[in-house]
């Protein structure tokens, strides 16, 4: 079962919409509330990252009997040093983005904490692909 959601860079008013849609699906699948919470927190962080940093992106969600696999692919500036970006508090967000309450430098660490496995591939000047896998049971 596969779902795709388009993400629009810079449109903060819609940030969180895709995560909310996935949350509805997880509720339909009778996933435990605590697990839904983890997954949605990770998705929301990823979604906001695309909105805050990239030009556009797609959230691809695939369910099977055991797992939810989410791949967020964006066209954007890319991450030059993934190791640095994974450190809590490190942020490249502009002052404008921070004023909106985003960009505290907790995004990637928070995503890692709230999924079973996280992988990031990025090419500077092209874009970033984040894949998160979480077991549903």
């Amino acid at each position: 079962m596969e779902f795709n959601y388009n993400l629009e860079g810079g449109n903060f008013s819609r940030a969180g919409a895709a995560s909310s849609e996935v949350k509805k699906l997880l509720k339909q699948l009778n996933v435990s509330p605590a697990l839904i919470k983890r997954i949605v927190i990770a998705l929301y962080e990823a979604e906001v990252n695309v909105v805050a940093h990239a030009y556009e992106g797609v959230m691809n969600v695939v369910f099977d009997n055991q797992t939810i696999r989410v791949k967020i692919t964006d066209k954007g500036p890319g991450i030059p040093d993934i190791g640095l970006a994974m450190q809590e508090g490190y942020s490249t967000a502009s002052p404008k983005v921070r004023e909106m309450g985003f960009g505290a430098g907790m995004g990637l660490p928070n995503m890692k904490k709230n999924c079973d496995s996280l992988s990031i591939e990025s090419q500077v000047g092209v874009g970033t692909t984040v894949t998160m896998i979480t077991h549903l049971q």
Binding site: Q28, L29, N30, V31, N65, Q137
Partner: peptide
């Protein structure tokens, strides 16, 4: 919860499809 399609994840997934 009123939104769940089935207690069983596999059945719920089939219903979602």
């Amino acid at each position: 919860p009123i939104e769940k399609l089935d207690e069983d994840l596999t059945v719920a997934l089939q219903k979602m499809e």
